[in-house]
Simulated scan of single mutants.
Amino acid sequence: MTAGTSLLAQFAALDSATVSDALDACGLPPGQGGLRPMWGTPKVAGFARTVQLEPVDHSPTDSRGGAHILTGAIAEAGPEDVVVVANGGRTDVSSWGGIVSVGASVRGVRGVVTDGACRDVGQARELGFPVFARGQVPVTARGRLRQRSAGEPVSLGDVTVGQGDLVLADEGGVVVVPRERAEEVLDAARRLADREAAIEAEVRAGVPLPDAMRDARLAGTEARR
């Protein structure tokens, strides 16, 4: 097991809400909702492979074309990666489909988070390939979207994602952890998880909720030290 794989496994043992609280405690942007699993309830932790999409410009002066969107990034991705697609939250056109799910699955990619819509969800489900998106739409990207960049920082909702940042996605939402601060956030998240587990145990043992939630144990004050 590589150091990266070990780090991902430790984050995968947590949930997006706890990591979001830890990001808050560390002064970093918290998680976000609206990016839902398109099938089942998968949990994905991986390092970001970023792709920026943009609308096709049909003007005569625009000569940009090239390879199909996403294909280069997928060809370079591997078993520790999650593809992150920035498409400005558009839900009128698909920014991820069945063929790229197949290509990513063959490469061992852990999943995709796309700030937009997707299609061919049944194909992704059959592959067991996790897709997180803002919705589904049957409309193809062909002739509507093109790739502006790959491997550059992108916006996923209100959060900036850099290539190699850690992404955790589950049924509760998506969190992005800057790679250089991953250990700090992991430490904070573990302490928060321990506090929440202790409070839950007290409540289940019959301690009144106001007493179990005394002081600021859920506020992450210890994580800020």
Rank of each mutant, 00 (worst) to 15 (best):
A12K: 15
G103T: 00
F11V: 14
L70A: 05
P210A: 13
G89V: 11
H68M: 11
E80C: 05
F129M: 05
T221I: 13
E171T: 13
V82M: 09
A124V: 12
A188Q: 11
A216C: 10
Q136D: 15
A48N: 06
D120Y: 09
A104T: 08
V112Y: 09
E76N: 10
A189W: 04
T91F: 01
G27L: 08
T221E: 14
V131N: 07
V161G: 10
D215L: 08
G89W: 02
A212N: 02
A201E: 13
L70Y: 11
A133M: 08
L35D: 04
D62W: 05
R90P: 07
L209W: 09
R107W: 04
E200H: 08
T160Y: 03
G157H: 00
G65Q: 06
G78Y: 04
T91N: 07
R64H: 10
V154W: 02
V44Y: 02
L218K: 07
D187M: 10
R190T: 06
G97L: 00
P79R: 08
R191W: 07
S6M: 13
E80V: 01
L192K: 05
V112H: 03
V109S: 01
V207E: 08
G78E: 11
A67W: 00
F129P: 06
W39H: 15
P153Q: 07
S155L: 15
E184F: 04
P79A: 15
D24N: 14
G34I: 06
D215W: 01
V131P: 09
P29E: 00
I69P: 05
S155G: 11
P153A: 05
V174I: 14
E80W: 03
R146C: 15
